[in-house]
Simulated scan of single mutants.
Amino acid sequence: MTDHDFITGLPKAELHLHIEGSLEPELMFALAQRNKVAIPYASIEEVRAAYSFSRLQDFLDIYYAGANVLQKQEDFRDLAVAYFDRAAADGVVHAEIMFDPQTHTDRGIAFGTVIEGLLAGMADANARYGMTSKLILCFLRHLDEDAAFVTLAAAEPWLDRIDAVGLDSSELGHPPEKFARVFAAARAKGLRLVAHAGEEGPPDYVLQALDLLEIDRLDHGNRSLEDPVLTARLARTGMTLTVCPLSNLKLCVVDDMANHPIDRMIKAGLRATINSDDPAYFGGYIADNYRAAASARGLDRGDLVLLARNSFLGSFLPDDAVAAHLARLDAYVEASR
Results as ranks from 00 to 15, higher is better:
residue 81 V to T: 03
residue 81 V to D: 02
residue 82 A to D: 11
residue 82 A to G: 02
residue 82 A to W: 12
residue 82 A to Q: 12
residue 82 A to Y: 05
residue 83 Y to S: 01
residue 83 Y to C: 00
residue 84 F to E: 04
residue 84 F to I: 04
residue 84 F to K: 04
residue 85 D to L: 06
residue 85 D to Q: 15
residue 85 D to N: 11
residue 85 D to G: 00
residue 86 R to D: 02
residue 86 R to H: 12
residue 86 R to S: 07
residue 86 R to A: 07
residue 87 A to H: 09
residue 87 A to P: 02
residue 87 A to D: 02
residue 87 A to T: 06
residue 87 A to F: 11
residue 88 A to Y: 15
residue 88 A to R: 13
residue 89 A to S: 11
residue 89 A to V: 05
residue 90 D to F: 08
residue 90 D to L: 06
residue 91 G to S: 09
residue 91 G to C: 07
residue 91 G to P: 05
residue 91 G to N: 11
residue 92 V to S: 01
residue 92 V to D: 07
residue 92 V to C: 10
residue 92 V to T: 11
residue 93 V to G: 02
residue 94 H to N: 10
residue 94 H to K: 05
residue 94 H to P: 04
residue 95 A to I: 07
residue 95 A to W: 10
residue 95 A to C: 04
residue 95 A to Y: 13
residue 96 E to M: 12
residue 97 I to D: 00
residue 97 I to A: 03
residue 98 M to V: 03
residue 98 M to L: 10
residue 99 F to G: 00
residue 99 F to V: 02
residue 100 D to Y: 14
residue 100 D to V: 09
residue 100 D to S: 14
residue 100 D to Q: 15
residue 100 D to L: 15
residue 101 P to Q: 12
residue 101 P to S: 11
residue 102 Q to A: 12
residue 102 Q to T: 10
residue 102 Q to I: 04
residue 102 Q to M: 15
residue 103 T to V: 15
residue 104 H to R: 09
residue 104 H to D: 05
residue 104 H to C: 01
residue 104 H to W: 07
residue 104 H to T: 04
residue 104 H to Q: 14
residue 105 T to P: 01
residue 105 T to Q: 11
residue 105 T to M: 07
residue 105 T to E: 08
residue 106 D to N: 13
residue 106 D to P: 00
residue 106 D to V: 00
residue 106 D to F: 15
residue 107 R to A: 01
residue 107 R to Y: 08
residue 107 R to L: 11
residue 108 G to R: 13
residue 108 G to K: 11
residue 109 I to Y: 10
residue 109 I to M: 08
residue 109 I to N: 04
residue 110 A to P: 05
residue 111 F to C: 03
residue 111 F to W: 13
residue 111 F to G: 02
residue 112 G to N: 13
residue 112 G to C: 07
residue 113 T to W: 12
residue 113 T to V: 08
residue 113 T to D: 09
residue 113 T to G: 01
residue 114 V to Q: 13
residue 114 V to M: 12
residue 115 I to V: 11
residue 115 I to Y: 07
residue 115 I to W: 08
residue 116 E to V: 01
residue 116 E to F: 03
residue 117 G to Q: 08
residue 117 G to T: 10
residue 117 G to C: 02
residue 117 G to M: 03
residue 118 L to M: 04
residue 118 L to T: 00
residue 118 L to R: 09
residue 118 L to Q: 02
residue 119 L to M: 06
residue 119 L to H: 10
residue 119 L to E: 12
residue 119 L to G: 00
residue 119 L to Q: 14
residue 120 A to G: 02
residue 121 G to F: 13
residue 121 G to A: 04
residue 121 G to P: 06
residue 121 G to D: 05
residue 122 M to V: 13
residue 122 M to Q: 11
residue 122 M to E: 06
residue 122 M to T: 07
